[in-house]
Amino acid sequence: MNLTVNGVDTTIESGPLTSLLDVLREELGITSAKAGCEQGGCGACTVLVNGASRRSCLTPVASIDGAAVTTVEGLGSPEHMSPVQQAFTHHYAAQCGFCTSGMMMAAQAYIEGGGSDDHEAIQEALGGHVCRCTGYVKIIDAVAAVARGESFDLSVTAAGTAMTNIGGMA
């Protein structure tokens, strides 16, 4: 099997029924997609498959053989963040950060699909993505800001390094 993961052609060795989540995390070492429930209930594992948001925990890899897969790593880097990544940073839309990757991929699909800044439409698009920290308001604000085409001054919100306690400098 083959996938194009964040633009890179990749041969997949895992068995055909292996979940896309396990392929990404365990075979390819791409860890932004999280295992929050592994049963389709939380959205933390969401990635884009041919541009559409999909729960990777419920996607047997064989069912998307040949597809293009995008994860948060494929949206942008710390030096060149995408508009969705900038908006999430500027609006403090991530607290613990565990739901954030899935949220941003769903937001990316919404924006690419021409989504507006209408809060109800954003809520609908992010439905089924569970966040236990933020209370959602900042997430919806961030997505609405991208939909309006706003630009973000990260000098006051993102001056910190991309350091994490466990990983050291990312």
């Binding site: 860890t31 790593e73 710390p78 999430f88 403090y92 910190g160 390094t161 466990i166 990312a170």
Partner: peptide, 12 residues
């Protein structure tokens, strides 16, 4: 940790 979260680099 804002940028790390937004770029999927935070290591849980």
């Amino acid at each position: 940790d804002g940028i790390a979260h937004a770029t999927g680099r935070t290591v849980f």
